[in-house]
Amino acid sequence: MTRSSGPHERPERLRLADDFWLIAHHDRSGRPRLNPLALGLGLAGALLGELATTGHLTIHDRHVHVTDDTPPADATSHGILEQIATKSRAHPVPVWLKFLAGSATETVTTRLVRAGLVQREQQRRRLGRINVVHRPTDRNQACWRSVRLRHALAGRYGGTPWDDMFLAGLADATGLLPKVLGDDHPAGRAYVARWLPRSDPPALYELAIAVETLVGDAVLGART
């Protein structure tokens, strides 16, 4: 479990989908900063990205392939890998993204709750309705996720790590990047566009592009 952080202590790194969840939610209220579809697709991309960075899967000819069926240490990643490995043939990246997106928010939220990083709260609203939110247990830690991403894209770490570049790519693909970078959004987007295609592993770039395409298709579909 990631330990709590003091006011002058940087939180430890989290898994990609956990990081994206915290970036995509308000650090105080826990409310999402994205619409449900974009959030689900971003988290689905991050979940597949976790398996790509551990060498469990790769993308070839726009299809997802298992390269190592050794069970990952994380139960969530293990479950996703099993689903992919049991298929008799490889499926295109968009198929897996859309499949995982339906439950990705619940899946990652549950993992964060179990890790003690967010807590479930019920808020009573008008007409007796109950609204459920998941609020970060450590606001400093939650806020640091976006701060770290801004610092990484500004080159303050002597070069942006590929996992941060991938998170930035997902943020751009889902429309979240302006909320993370503010007025620096155009420069940050140009930086990501330049370097993300060189990502290691290359599957990270493929995933980010596929998420962007699906989100864009959804937006166009809603307008027609």
Rank of each mutant, 00 (worst) to 15 (best):
H78K: 13
D61K: 15
E212P: 03
P197G: 03
A52W: 03
L153M: 08
L48N: 00
W162K: 10
F99H: 15
E121G: 07
E9G: 00
G79R: 15
I130W: 03
V211Q: 02
L204F: 05
D217N: 14
A115M: 10
R111Q: 13
V113R: 14
E9N: 02
A85V: 11
R139Q: 13
N140R: 14
A104E: 02
R223Y: 02
L170E: 08
S146H: 05
V147S: 12
R13G: 04
H56W: 01
L112K: 11
P136F: 04
D183W: 09
K87H: 15
R150H: 02
G40C: 09
D138Y: 02
T86H: 12
P71L: 01
D19G: 12
L214V: 06
N35V: 10
A203L: 02
T224N: 10
R156F: 10
H65E: 15
L34G: 02
R89S: 15
T224K: 09
Q141E: 10
G175F: 01
V132I: 13
D217S: 12
H63T: 12
I130G: 06
T54D: 08
R125E: 15
S5Y: 04
V215N: 01
R33M: 08
S5H: 08
A218I: 00
L43F: 02
H63C: 13
A154C: 06
T54W: 01
L220R: 14
V180T: 07
D74N: 14
V219K: 07
D172G: 11
V93I: 06
L41H: 02
R145T: 11
L177Q: 05
E121V: 14
Q83V: 11
C143D: 15
L207T: 01
L41W: 02
A152D: 10
G128T: 04
R139I: 14
A44G: 05
R124D: 12
H134V: 11
D217R: 15
R89D: 13
E9P: 03
H26M: 07
E82Y: 04
L167M: 03
L34S: 03
A104Y: 00
F166V: 01
L41V: 03
S29W: 00
L100P: 11
L112I: 10
H56T: 03
L220M: 09
D217P: 08
D19T: 14
V219E: 04
N35D: 14
D68T: 06
V215R: 03
S77R: 09
R126W: 13
L127Y: 13
T110Y: 09
K87T: 15
T174P: 10
V211M: 03
D164S: 09
R3K: 12
T70C: 06
H151S: 14
I59P: 08
H65S: 13
R148C: 04
E212T: 08
Y191R: 15
Q122N: 15
L48W: 00
L170P: 11
F99E: 15
L176Y: 05
Q141V: 07
P7H: 09
